[in-house]
Simulated scan of single mutants.
Amino acid sequence: MRVSVVGAGLGGLALAQGLRGAGIDAEVFERDPGIVARFQGYRLVLDLVGFQAVRDCLPARWHPLLDEIVMDASAEQLILDPQLTEIGRLGASRTGIVVDRQVLRHLLLTGLTVRTDAALTGYDVLPDGNVEAHFARRDPVAADLLVGADGVTSAVRSVLSPRTTPTDTGVRFVIGRTPLTDEFVSLSKAYGSKVAGDGVSLLLGAMRFRTPPKRAAEQLAPEVTLPDIGDYVRWAMILPPDGLPADLTARDAVLSRMDGWHPELRALIEQADPDNSALLSIRVVTPGERWPSGPVTLLGDAIHATSPTGGNGANTALRDADLLRRCLIEVNEGRQDLLSAVDDYERRMFDYGAEAVRGSLAKLPAFTPGALSDC
Protein backbone atom coordinates (compact mmCIF):
# COMPACT_ATOMS: atom_id res chain seq x y z
CA MET A 1 0.00 0.00 0.00
CA ARG A 2 1.19 3.50 -0.84
CA VAL A 3 0.01 6.66 0.93
CA SER A 4 0.62 10.24 -0.23
CA VAL A 5 0.41 12.82 2.58
CA VAL A 6 -0.03 16.46 1.54
CA GLY A 7 1.28 18.78 4.26
CA ALA A 8 4.34 18.51 6.52
CA GLY A 9 2.76 19.75 9.73
CA LEU A 10 2.69 17.74 12.94
CA GLY A 11 -0.35 15.64 11.97
CA GLY A 12 0.86 14.70 8.50
CA LEU A 13 4.37 13.89 9.71
CA ALA A 14 3.09 11.82 12.65
CA LEU A 15 0.94 9.79 10.26
CA ALA A 16 3.87 9.25 7.90
CA GLN A 17 6.11 8.16 10.79
CA GLY A 18 3.46 5.77 12.07
CA LEU A 19 2.95 4.22 8.63
CA ARG A 20 6.70 3.96 8.05
CA GLY A 21 7.04 2.09 11.33
CA ALA A 22 4.38 -0.37 10.15
CA GLY A 23 6.13 -1.00 6.83
CA ILE A 24 3.67 1.08 4.78
CA ASP A 25 5.06 3.31 2.03
CA ALA A 26 4.30 6.93 2.91
CA GLU A 27 5.58 10.01 1.08
CA VAL A 28 5.01 13.60 2.23
CA PHE A 29 4.48 16.57 -0.10
CA GLU A 30 4.93 20.10 1.26
CA ARG A 31 4.11 23.30 -0.66
CA ASP A 32 6.78 25.38 1.14
CA PRO A 33 10.06 25.70 -0.79
CA GLY A 34 11.96 24.13 2.10
CA ILE A 35 11.36 22.41 5.44
CA VAL A 36 12.49 25.47 7.42
CA ALA A 37 11.11 28.08 5.02
CA ARG A 38 8.78 29.32 7.76
CA PHE A 39 9.43 29.59 11.48
CA GLN A 40 7.26 27.03 13.29
CA GLY A 41 8.72 26.96 16.77
CA TYR A 42 6.14 27.84 19.37
CA ARG A 43 5.23 26.10 22.60
CA LEU A 44 2.33 23.62 22.57
CA VAL A 45 0.55 21.83 25.39
CA LEU A 46 -0.42 18.25 24.59
CA ASP A 47 -3.01 16.44 26.66
CA LEU A 48 -2.53 12.78 27.53
CA VAL A 49 -4.36 11.64 24.39
CA GLY A 50 -2.30 13.86 22.08
CA PHE A 51 1.00 12.95 23.70
CA GLN A 52 0.23 9.23 23.61
CA ALA A 53 -0.80 9.56 19.96
CA VAL A 54 2.52 11.07 18.89
CA ARG A 55 4.38 8.58 21.05
CA ASP A 56 2.59 5.67 19.37
CA CYS A 57 3.43 7.06 15.92
CA LEU A 58 7.16 7.26 16.72
CA PRO A 59 9.61 4.34 16.86
CA ALA A 60 9.99 3.03 20.41
CA ARG A 61 13.73 3.70 20.29
CA TRP A 62 12.99 7.46 20.22
CA HIS A 63 10.68 7.44 23.23
CA PRO A 64 13.50 8.26 25.72
CA LEU A 65 14.46 11.24 23.56
CA LEU A 66 10.85 12.42 23.36
CA ASP A 67 10.53 12.22 27.14
CA GLU A 68 13.72 14.27 27.58
CA ILE A 69 12.69 17.23 25.38
CA VAL A 70 9.30 17.91 26.97
CA MET A 71 8.16 19.33 30.29
CA ASP A 72 5.14 18.87 32.48
CA ALA A 73 2.51 21.60 32.24
CA SER A 74 0.84 22.89 35.34
CA ALA A 75 -0.68 26.34 35.43
CA GLU A 76 -3.30 27.95 37.66
CA GLN A 77 -4.64 30.06 34.77
CA LEU A 78 -4.97 33.30 36.70
CA ILE A 79 -6.25 36.62 35.39
CA LEU A 80 -3.74 39.38 36.18
CA ASP A 81 -3.81 43.11 35.66
CA PRO A 82 -0.93 44.88 33.86
CA GLN A 83 0.89 45.25 37.20
CA LEU A 84 0.70 41.45 37.74
CA THR A 85 -1.90 41.68 40.50
CA GLU A 86 -4.35 38.76 40.54
CA ILE A 87 -7.88 39.93 39.69
CA GLY A 88 -9.56 36.62 38.86
CA ARG A 89 -9.20 33.08 37.58
CA LEU A 90 -9.84 31.55 34.17
CA GLY A 91 -10.80 28.16 35.57
CA ALA A 92 -9.23 24.93 36.70
CA SER A 93 -5.47 24.47 36.52
CA ARG A 94 -4.28 23.11 33.20
CA THR A 95 -2.05 20.06 33.08
CA GLY A 96 -0.41 18.16 30.25
CA ILE A 97 2.90 17.89 28.40
CA VAL A 98 4.62 20.96 26.97
CA VAL A 99 6.52 20.55 23.70
CA ASP A 100 8.21 22.90 21.27
CA ARG A 101 6.61 22.59 17.84
CA GLN A 102 9.86 23.14 15.95
CA VAL A 103 11.70 20.49 17.97
CA LEU A 104 8.88 17.97 17.71
CA ARG A 105 8.57 18.62 13.97
CA HIS A 106 12.28 17.90 13.43
CA LEU A 107 11.95 14.65 15.36
CA LEU A 108 8.96 13.65 13.24
CA LEU A 109 10.83 14.54 10.03
CA THR A 110 13.68 12.13 10.76
CA GLY A 111 13.93 9.39 8.15
CA LEU A 112 10.90 10.46 6.14
CA THR A 113 10.72 11.18 2.41
CA VAL A 114 9.48 14.78 2.16
CA ARG A 115 9.10 16.52 -1.22
CA THR A 116 9.18 20.30 -0.82
CA ASP A 117 8.02 22.94 -3.31
CA ALA A 118 5.13 20.57 -4.05
CA ALA A 119 1.97 22.68 -4.23
CA LEU A 120 -1.04 20.48 -4.95
CA THR A 121 -3.21 21.70 -7.82
CA GLY A 122 -5.76 18.87 -7.82
CA TYR A 123 -6.20 15.14 -8.03
CA ASP A 124 -8.03 12.47 -10.04
CA VAL A 125 -9.50 9.19 -8.88
CA LEU A 126 -8.31 6.61 -11.40
CA PRO A 127 -10.38 3.74 -12.88
CA ASP A 128 -8.50 1.21 -10.75
CA GLY A 129 -9.53 3.04 -7.56
CA ASN A 130 -6.17 4.65 -6.92
CA VAL A 131 -5.74 8.42 -6.75
CA GLU A 132 -3.34 10.59 -8.73
CA ALA A 133 -2.18 13.86 -7.18
CA HIS A 134 -1.16 16.76 -9.41
CA PHE A 135 1.38 19.41 -8.43
CA ALA A 136 2.39 22.78 -9.87
CA ARG A 137 6.05 21.95 -10.39
CA ARG A 138 6.21 18.17 -10.05
CA ASP A 139 5.09 15.13 -11.98
CA PRO A 140 1.80 13.48 -10.90
CA VAL A 141 2.03 10.87 -8.15
CA ALA A 142 -0.31 7.87 -7.82
CA ALA A 143 -1.17 6.25 -4.49
CA ASP A 144 -3.75 4.04 -2.85
CA LEU A 145 -4.69 6.88 -0.51
CA LEU A 146 -4.24 10.66 -0.59
CA VAL A 147 -4.36 12.40 2.81
CA GLY A 148 -4.89 16.15 2.98
CA ALA A 149 -3.02 17.34 6.05
CA ASP A 150 -2.45 20.76 4.50
CA GLY A 151 -4.02 23.10 7.01
CA VAL A 152 -6.79 25.68 7.09
CA THR A 153 -6.42 26.58 3.41
CA SER A 154 -6.26 22.91 2.36
CA ALA A 155 -5.96 22.38 -1.40
CA VAL A 156 -7.13 18.79 -0.94
CA ARG A 157 -10.28 19.92 0.91
CA SER A 158 -11.10 22.45 -1.81
CA VAL A 159 -11.59 19.52 -4.21
CA LEU A 160 -12.91 16.88 -1.83
CA SER A 161 -15.35 19.07 0.11
CA PRO A 162 -15.54 22.52 -1.55
CA ARG A 163 -18.44 23.67 0.63
CA THR A 164 -16.35 23.19 3.78
CA THR A 165 -14.60 26.53 4.14
CA PRO A 166 -12.83 28.46 6.92
CA THR A 167 -14.77 30.88 9.09
CA ASP A 168 -12.98 34.00 10.30
CA THR A 169 -13.81 34.72 13.96
CA GLY A 170 -12.69 38.32 13.53
CA VAL A 171 -10.08 37.88 16.28
CA ARG A 172 -6.44 38.78 15.58
CA PHE A 173 -3.37 38.15 17.69
CA VAL A 174 0.37 38.72 17.64
CA ILE A 175 2.57 35.82 18.70
CA GLY A 176 6.28 35.80 19.52
CA ARG A 177 8.98 34.33 21.75
CA THR A 178 11.67 35.65 24.06
CA PRO A 179 14.66 33.79 25.60
CA LEU A 180 13.89 32.77 29.18
CA THR A 181 16.67 34.47 31.14
CA ASP A 182 17.04 35.11 34.87
CA GLU A 183 15.53 38.55 34.27
CA PHE A 184 12.11 36.97 33.80
CA VAL A 185 12.07 34.49 36.69
CA SER A 186 9.74 36.71 38.70
CA LEU A 187 7.13 36.47 35.92
CA SER A 188 6.57 32.79 36.68
CA LYS A 189 3.06 33.29 38.09
CA ALA A 190 2.04 34.85 34.78
CA TYR A 191 3.00 31.78 32.76
CA GLY A 192 -0.21 30.03 31.76
CA SER A 193 -2.26 33.04 32.83
CA LYS A 194 -3.94 35.98 31.10
CA VAL A 195 -2.83 39.57 31.62
CA ALA A 196 -5.90 41.72 30.97
CA GLY A 197 -5.13 45.23 29.78
CA ASP A 198 -7.10 48.03 28.19
CA GLY A 199 -8.75 46.31 25.23
CA VAL A 200 -6.08 43.60 24.91
CA SER A 201 -5.09 40.32 26.54
CA LEU A 202 -1.52 39.02 26.86
CA LEU A 203 -0.98 35.27 27.27
CA LEU A 204 2.37 33.89 28.43
CA GLY A 205 3.76 30.35 28.48
CA ALA A 206 7.21 29.08 29.45
CA MET A 207 9.11 26.39 27.53
CA ARG A 208 11.77 24.75 29.70
CA PHE A 209 13.57 21.71 28.32
CA ARG A 210 14.69 18.95 30.66
CA THR A 211 17.78 18.72 28.43
CA PRO A 212 18.57 21.09 25.54
CA PRO A 213 17.16 19.33 22.44
CA LYS A 214 20.37 19.22 20.40
CA ARG A 215 22.33 17.69 23.28
CA ALA A 216 19.52 15.27 24.14
CA ALA A 217 19.49 13.93 20.58
CA GLU A 218 23.27 13.55 20.51
CA GLN A 219 23.13 11.54 23.73
CA LEU A 220 20.01 9.43 23.17
CA ALA A 221 19.46 9.14 19.38
CA PRO A 222 22.49 10.22 17.32
CA GLU A 223 20.61 9.62 14.06
CA VAL A 224 18.24 12.48 15.00
CA THR A 225 19.25 16.12 14.55
CA LEU A 226 17.29 18.60 16.66
CA PRO A 227 17.48 22.42 16.72
CA ASP A 228 19.96 24.06 19.06
CA ILE A 229 17.55 26.18 21.10
CA GLY A 230 17.19 27.04 24.76
CA ASP A 231 14.37 27.84 27.16
CA TYR A 232 12.02 30.65 26.17
CA VAL A 233 8.72 32.40 26.89
CA ARG A 234 6.00 32.18 24.25
CA TRP A 235 3.72 35.20 24.34
CA ALA A 236 0.59 36.13 22.44
CA MET A 237 -1.41 39.34 22.54
CA ILE A 238 -5.05 39.08 21.51
CA LEU A 239 -6.10 42.33 19.88
CA PRO A 240 -9.37 44.25 19.63
CA PRO A 241 -11.21 44.27 16.28
CA ASP A 242 -9.18 47.19 14.90
CA GLY A 243 -6.22 44.79 14.89
CA LEU A 244 -2.66 45.77 14.07
CA PRO A 245 -1.72 49.30 12.95
CA ALA A 246 -0.39 49.13 9.40
CA ASP A 247 2.65 51.33 10.15
CA LEU A 248 4.05 49.22 13.02
CA THR A 249 5.87 45.92 13.23
CA ALA A 250 4.13 43.14 15.14
CA ARG A 251 6.39 43.58 18.19
CA ASP A 252 6.10 47.37 18.24
CA ALA A 253 2.33 47.13 17.90
CA VAL A 254 2.23 45.01 21.05
CA LEU A 255 4.42 47.51 22.91
CA SER A 256 2.14 50.35 21.78
CA ARG A 257 -0.69 48.68 23.73
CA MET A 258 1.40 48.33 26.92
CA ASP A 259 1.85 51.90 28.15
CA GLY A 260 2.09 51.84 31.94
CA TRP A 261 2.41 48.04 32.15
CA HIS A 262 4.80 46.30 34.55
CA PRO A 263 8.37 46.95 33.32
CA GLU A 264 9.22 43.24 33.20
CA LEU A 265 6.28 42.58 30.91
CA ARG A 266 7.42 45.34 28.59
CA ALA A 267 11.01 44.05 28.74
CA LEU A 268 9.79 40.60 27.76
CA ILE A 269 8.33 41.98 24.53
CA GLU A 270 11.23 44.36 23.89
CA GLN A 271 13.70 41.45 24.01
CA ALA A 272 11.66 39.20 21.72
CA ASP A 273 13.11 37.97 18.46
CA PRO A 274 11.58 40.33 15.86
CA ASP A 275 11.95 37.74 13.09
CA ASN A 276 9.73 35.33 15.01
CA SER A 277 6.85 37.69 15.78
CA ALA A 278 3.80 37.57 13.54
CA LEU A 279 0.22 38.77 13.26
CA LEU A 280 -2.26 35.92 12.81
CA SER A 281 -6.02 35.61 12.42
CA ILE A 282 -8.13 33.05 14.23
CA ARG A 283 -10.05 31.01 11.68
CA VAL A 284 -11.89 27.77 12.26
CA VAL A 285 -13.00 24.92 10.03
CA THR A 286 -15.98 22.86 11.17
CA PRO A 287 -16.58 19.39 9.70
CA GLY A 288 -19.79 19.58 7.70
CA GLU A 289 -21.52 17.06 5.49
CA ARG A 290 -19.62 13.82 4.94
CA TRP A 291 -18.36 13.14 1.44
CA PRO A 292 -18.61 9.61 -0.02
CA SER A 293 -15.74 7.47 1.23
CA GLY A 294 -12.99 7.00 -1.30
CA PRO A 295 -9.21 7.07 -1.69
CA VAL A 296 -8.96 10.67 -0.40
CA THR A 297 -9.37 11.93 3.16
CA LEU A 298 -8.47 14.84 5.44
CA LEU A 299 -6.60 15.25 8.70
CA GLY A 300 -6.05 17.99 11.26
CA ASP A 301 -6.74 21.66 10.50
CA ALA A 302 -7.73 20.76 6.95
CA ILE A 303 -11.06 19.49 8.33
CA HIS A 304 -11.37 20.71 11.93
CA ALA A 305 -9.29 23.84 12.59
CA THR A 306 -9.85 25.09 16.14
CA SER A 307 -9.25 28.37 17.93
CA PRO A 308 -5.83 28.29 19.65
CA THR A 309 -7.48 29.40 22.89
CA GLY A 310 -8.97 25.91 23.08
CA GLY A 311 -5.51 24.37 23.26
CA ASN A 312 -6.73 21.35 21.29
CA GLY A 313 -5.66 21.88 17.66
CA ALA A 314 -2.39 19.92 17.73
CA ASN A 315 -3.92 17.33 20.05
CA THR A 316 -6.77 16.64 17.65
CA ALA A 317 -4.48 16.46 14.60
CA LEU A 318 -2.22 13.96 16.38
CA ARG A 319 -5.26 11.95 17.42
CA ASP A 320 -6.27 11.85 13.74
CA ALA A 321 -2.82 10.64 12.73
CA ASP A 322 -2.82 7.82 15.24
CA LEU A 323 -6.38 6.74 14.43
CA LEU A 324 -5.77 6.73 10.68
CA ARG A 325 -2.48 4.90 11.21
CA ARG A 326 -4.28 2.15 13.11
CA CYS A 327 -7.00 1.87 10.46
CA LEU A 328 -4.46 1.60 7.64
CA ILE A 329 -2.44 -1.03 9.48
CA GLU A 330 -5.60 -3.15 9.51
CA VAL A 331 -5.79 -2.74 5.73
CA ASN A 332 -2.14 -3.62 5.30
CA GLU A 333 -2.62 -6.76 7.38
CA GLY A 334 -5.66 -7.82 5.39
CA ARG A 335 -8.15 -7.38 8.24
CA GLN A 336 -10.14 -4.63 6.47
CA ASP A 337 -10.46 -3.15 2.99
CA LEU A 338 -9.24 0.39 2.35
CA LEU A 339 -12.60 2.11 1.80
CA SER A 340 -14.07 0.59 4.94
CA ALA A 341 -11.03 1.65 6.94
CA VAL A 342 -11.23 5.21 5.63
CA ASP A 343 -14.95 5.33 6.37
CA ASP A 344 -14.32 4.11 9.93
CA TYR A 345 -11.65 6.79 10.43
CA GLU A 346 -13.79 9.59 9.02
CA ARG A 347 -16.89 8.65 11.00
CA ARG A 348 -15.02 8.81 14.29
CA MET A 349 -12.88 11.82 13.33
CA PHE A 350 -15.91 13.90 12.31
CA ASP A 351 -17.48 13.39 15.73
CA TYR A 352 -14.55 14.34 17.94
CA GLY A 353 -13.26 16.92 15.44
CA ALA A 354 -16.52 18.86 15.47
CA GLU A 355 -16.56 18.72 19.27
CA ALA A 356 -12.99 20.06 19.36
CA VAL A 357 -14.01 23.08 17.26
CA ARG A 358 -17.08 23.74 19.42
CA GLY A 359 -15.03 23.48 22.60
CA SER A 360 -12.37 25.86 21.35
CA LEU A 361 -14.94 28.48 20.34
CA ALA A 362 -16.66 28.20 23.71
CA LYS A 363 -13.37 29.19 25.38
CA LEU A 364 -12.53 32.03 23.02
CA PRO A 365 -14.59 34.80 24.73
CA ALA A 366 -12.65 34.32 28.00
CA PHE A 367 -9.46 35.39 26.21
CA THR A 368 -10.94 38.05 23.95
CA PRO A 369 -11.00 41.72 24.94
CA GLY A 370 -14.05 42.65 22.82
CA ALA A 371 -17.21 41.18 21.40
CA LEU A 372 -16.85 38.35 18.89
CA SER A 373 -18.52 38.04 15.56
CA ASP A 374 -20.87 35.11 15.15
CA CYS A 375 -19.22 32.01 13.77
Rank of each mutant, 00 (worst) to 15 (best):
L66T: 15
N130Q: 06
L298W: 10
R137I: 00
A75W: 14
E183A: 12
A314T: 09
G122A: 10
R326K: 06
L328N: 06
E218H: 04
N312Q: 11
V5C: 10
E218D: 10
P308L: 12
A92F: 01
T164R: 13
V125E: 06
L46T: 05
V285F: 11
G41A: 13
G230V: 07
A216E: 09
R138P: 00
R177H: 13
G88P: 14
Q219K: 14
A16G: 06
M71K: 00
G148K: 03
A371P: 11
P33M: 04
L44G: 07
Y42D: 11
G23E: 04
Q219H: 13
G111L: 14
L126A: 04
V285W: 05
A356M: 07
P295I: 02
R326G: 04
V357T: 10
R335L: 10
A317Y: 03
G18D: 09
L265G: 03
A250D: 15
G300W: 00
I329K: 03
L78F: 15
F173A: 12
V174R: 00
V152H: 08
L255S: 10
H63N: 14
D273C: 03
R347N: 06
P179E: 10
E330C: 10
S256N: 11
P241V: 08
G9P: 01
V284C: 11
L90T: 05
A302I: 03
S373A: 15
E76M: 12
T225H: 15
E289C: 02
S154D: 09
A216R: 11
A92P: 11
L298A: 02
T306N: 12
D198I: 06
A196G: 11
L108K: 08
C57Q: 06
L255I: 07
G310Q: 11
A253E: 07
R257Y: 08
E270L: 02
G151D: 11
V28N: 06
G122R: 08
F39N: 02
P308Q: 12
P274G: 01
A60C: 07
V195D: 13
L220Y: 13
T249L: 03
K214S: 14
R335K: 10
